[in-house]
Simulated assay, not measured.
Amino acid sequence: MADDDFETGDLFQDPEGFYEKDPEPTFAEYEMLSGQTVRVRLVGSHPLYGNLLWNAGRISSTHIEERADELVRDKDVLEIGAAAGVPSIVSAIMGARKVVMTDYHDPDLVSNMQYNADLAADQIPKSDTSRTTAGAHLPESRQKADGFDLLIMADVVYSWREHGNLVKTMQETLKKDPSAVALVIFTPYEPWLLPQTERFFPLAEHGGFTVTKIFEQLVGKVLFEDDPGDEKLRRTVFGYELRWSPEQLSGQT
């Protein structure tokens, strides 16, 4: 038989339905204390759980709304690990001058953050200076500026291997001002790893920050019902404020 008589047909063609379709995006709502509803789109699936609206994000949003005058009004805000970006959107609604949402360098996450920023545009007070942007990294212009007044870090300290990078990010982005603050809010979804998670705080102190625990709040239900470990801890949201230590601010005007 001649070589050109041999046919492989669709040998390398996957049969229809062989792979499961990617889950479709879903929507979630967060009700502000003011009664406004923030509606956000969640990515269909993601290895870093960008398809969920995390408890720490909800509690961060409430805390920001309660202390808007001090934390966000007419201030520059950066959210690290924003996912759907609810705390960022709440900050913008409450009068932040500029809000930047960042997350892991993933096109689906970044485009979804921008989608949610655009979706909330009508709720954000209009001014000549206010702006909400999304990206996988800081715009170059902001990296060279004075820094941000508020860093929102909700559920980003669970990976202790990245603690050093988080401290470095704080050092490079938090404005050198006594009023500038980083909100570190998290839930120990794997309670047995809580001691490793808490290693972040002495590392931050060593990096030039003061650490103050501001609340410990129990939410109504766990986020992952089938997970093992102490249920109470999995329903607890811990909140901390990190500011520059006085030594780091010496000589600042």
Rank of each mutant, 00 (worst) to 15 (best):
S60I: 00
S60G: 09
S61D: 00
E65Q: 07
E65F: 09
E65S: 07
E66F: 09
E66Q: 14
D69K: 14
V72R: 07
V77W: 12
V77Y: 12
E79I: 12
E79K: 11
G81E: 09
G81V: 04
G81H: 04
A82I: 01
A82F: 08
A84F: 05
G85H: 04
G85K: 02
V86C: 02
P87F: 01
S88E: 01
A92T: 02
I93E: 09
R97G: 07
R97W: 10
D106G: 05
D108R: 11
L109Q: 03
V110R: 03
N112G: 01
M113G: 04
Q114H: 11
Q114F: 08
D118W: 08
A120D: 00
A121K: 15
D122A: 10
Q123M: 08
Q123A: 10
I124P: 06
P125M: 11
K126Q: 08
K126G: 00
S127F: 02
T129K: 09
R131Y: 10
R131M: 13
S141P: 01
S141D: 14
D149L: 01
L150A: 12
L151M: 14
L151I: 15
V156Q: 09
V156Y: 09
E162L: 15
H163Y: 03
G164Q: 13
G164D: 13
V167W: 08
K168T: 12
T169R: 13
Q171D: 07
E172G: 14
E172W: 12
K175W: 06
K176L: 14
D177H: 04
P178V: 05
P178E: 01
A180Q: 07
A182I: 03
A182K: 08
